[in-house]
Design a protein around this nucleic acid. Structure first.
Lengths: 210, 210
DNA sequence: TTCTTCATGTAATTAGTTACATGATTGA
DNA sequence: TCAATCATGTAACTAATTACATGAAGAA
């Protein structure tokens, strides 16, 4: 009953239920399309969390059938809308980033140049693929085919963030590839170009001044 | 004994041990300075993981004393260096991003404009503070005061990524603040400026073309 | 001498993932 | 009618976090 145990993931699902009712399977589809870019979670969570919301009185479940097979639809309650509004009033946490590929570049002086290049290439390809997803969704909305056009102002802000993020990652990977390509086989023997540090420092100063 | 159970966090610690021997406490300090930007982990992990490395034969521990108090120093073994090199040869995972603050902006049509502005302001301040940390470390290295100047080529690549990331987040927050400031109190009544979607799409196309 | 911060850990809890199971639908 | 994929879930496991505990060193 208490809302004390709800996690950010709970509220993420609650937020989707505020838009419209969904089954868990539909939630997993939406995870691929939108939520997964900023709050990625495994499929099983999307079967688990709605139950917790129901137990807390923030959602209710309806047993429907597809053919003869049962499926559960979830929809938000008035109490759920109030809980969501309270959550939205508190500032959210800052971005949290985990990047194993960069970790491998960071430690590349204990490996090979080709290993570092492989991580960078994988990053570049990932950034391109993600940008392609952004592009495809963007084209839909541009053509007026979007599924939630009434939420356009919110989508505008979110889409810009993820698009810029993927672009930034892609640009970094292209640049890093050029740098590492000039290294010898053994990266512990690579020599740093001083202008890189200078330019990075210039950017850091600028960003710290805002 | 088997290396099958090692996680990315294990290798992150192993990588640090390849640079030099550390105590767990020193590892926590280093987490604040460098590793935490790309692989953030709680302090207790840095006491736990080295033990797993020792159990696997990839590191060894030496009991030293500080005054009369014991403390454990960890150093990498030859087998550890080989395991690290193998790990570095496989491409690492793509960036994983979690961003609760953006989640709140995404669902802001179910809250208030001021709530959205608060999340954006918190993001802006965080980005500024992180950029300030990047700047401070950058100034040290620029002045030749860096602690690991022999790893400069690796630091160049990593520092550029995190600096650009913080700059991108800061620029997004400043822009988003301007957009949301024009919204009415009730964000579900906000009207989208079509030029935003057009520009985002332009950027997505560009990033998808690389 | 006492208080605070630094330093070094352990224990309890949990949020999340991976793996598994299985019925329904579709198309070859 | 068989195989593949869509759809709907549960169970087992684990990586990680939060909270706790405590000695040493340095400051007031």
């Amino acid at each position: 009953m208490s809302t004390a145990t709800l996690t950010t993931t709970s509220y993420a699902v609650l937020g989707l239920l505020a838009v419209k009712p969904w089954s868990s399977y539909e939630l997993t589809q939406q995870m691929d399309r939108s939520l997964g870019h900023i709050w990625p979670r495994a499929t099983s969570k999307l079967y688990e969390e709605p139950k917790k919301l129901v137990a807390a009185g923030l959602a209710r479940s309806d047993d429907e059938r597809v053919g003869r097979r049962p499926r559960t639809m979830y929809r938000i309650t008035p109490k759920g809308r109030r809980a969501l509004a309270r959550w939205l009033d508190e500032p959210g946490a800052a971005p949290a980033l985990e990047f194993e590929g960069l970790l491998k570049v960071f430690f590349s002086d204990h490996g090979t140049r080709d290993g570092a290049l492989a991580s960078i290439a994988a990053t570049a390809e990932w950034a391109r693929a993600q940008a392609e997803i952004s592009r495809a969704v963007g084209e839909e909305y541009e053509a007026g085919q979007g599924r939630f056009t009434e939420r356009q102002p919110q989508l505008d802000l979110t889409a810009r963030f993820v698009t810029d993020f993927y672009a930034m990652v892609g640009e970094w990977a292209a640049w890093a590839n050029g740098v590492v390509a000039t290294w010898p086989d053994d990266p512990s023997r690579a020599v740093s170009d001083p202008s890189i540090g200078t330019e990075t420092l210039r950017r850091a100063r600028r960003a710290a001044r805002r």
